[in-house]
Design a protein around this nucleic acid. Sequence first.
DNA 1: AAAAAAC
Length: 491
Amino acid sequence: MSDTASPSVQPDTAGAEPAPPARFDTLPLDPKLLRAVADSGYLTMTPIQAKAIPIVLQGRDVMGAAQTGTGKTAAFSIPLLQRMLKHENSSVSPARHPVRALVLAPTRELADQVAENVKKYAKHTHLRSVVVFGGVDMKPQTAALKAGVEVLIATPGRLLDHIEAKNCVLNQVEYVVLDEADRMLDIGFLPDLQRILSFLPKARQTLLFSATFSPEIKRLAQSYLQDPILVETARPNQTASTVEQRFISATDDDKRAIIKQILKEREIRQAIVFGNSKLGVARLARSFERDGLRTAALHGDKSQDERLKSLDAFKRGEVDLLVATDVAARGLDIADLPAVFNFDVPFNAEDYVHRIGRTGRAGASGLAVTLVTKSDARLVADIEKLIKRTITLDTFEVEPERPRFERRRRDESVEREDRPARAASPALRTPAPSTADPFFNKPYEASSRDEPPAWEKAKAASPVKGLSSYIKPKRQVAALFGAKKPAPAEG
DNA sequence: AAAAAAC
């Protein structure tokens, strides 16, 4: 255990496996699938793909655990499509196209993304797929289901709707996949999941995939699997070693300034900022927007149309910041995302692993910054325990935000939204703002840009580039907050 | 302390 200046998290020094990566074309796959894989630009398999695909091809149930961003979707969809091509369902006439494979995901955006992948791999085959999720018109989904699909990708609630409306029949399902399986098996989803599974044949192949499996969920999962094979790569619940993880001591008032300063310092092109609540996320997004950052918000109180627009704009690079709840924590594949910020420490340590897994995907590097207040000690200790790494808490020097500024903005918004009241009883108003004041009618945005940005001063003060000049390693988080000792030092 | 997933 070292106390020297070190990054927030010790680098992953675990021995890398030197096995040469196997190529997809060494697999016994239908040429139509191999062509689609090649079209996608993939040549060699990731470790989870190399391990899981042959086992799925054997028809075995699989619980697959692999780090974020290592291609779990391909690891189950390619071999499933192969099995569907090879073992045609002879009990039903091919014209009827019964649902043969069902993939369940915990968020609409993730279901959509998985469906895109399945379509991509199935494009040269006759196998048809459709995705159904809530928040959008049911009719097109119904029409597609009635026309017949072999692969159905869904979120639980909308699927149950379709089942009840008799838009689809699931008694011919041969393959079931739970993507983000530990989430699908958690208490919030379990009742819906159990109902859905009750409509499926008992004899089937079931696949569970996630980056995180707690021991309890692992045990629970056994009851949904038959003689399963556990496929794990590296250590479970791990974060990618290419992600630089920082934990910074902050106060609620400092958090936005710290994020803005790091964005500038590191010249970060794009980032996701995670918050714990929908309201907090909505407010935070507005705040960044006012600061002139191109920002989109993504949370469950937005319409599905808005959600898709936010995510699309972010993926296309039209916005710099995506401020999101944990709806965006899992599975979403955003190419080359350079950074993730945890404005709030997530309530579940597992969600930390998933959130920061949006960056550093497919071997790319990434930065993950978590802002920690005094009340977060327990949560940080949980994360430390889960990822089995030592977390140190850094301090960050930031230019204080100017309180006068905030006050003027609030006054102004009251003036604007509350015009009748103001006209009715001008005496109740705070005396200060008069139309003679040159600042009075100025929009907030304009005056905001008049301010020399805090990072400008910070940069001038220190010519050294990079975060390290502003972040100073502090004591270990456990020591700082007086939490329980993480691990006794051998004896 | 929350979020997600159906209308």
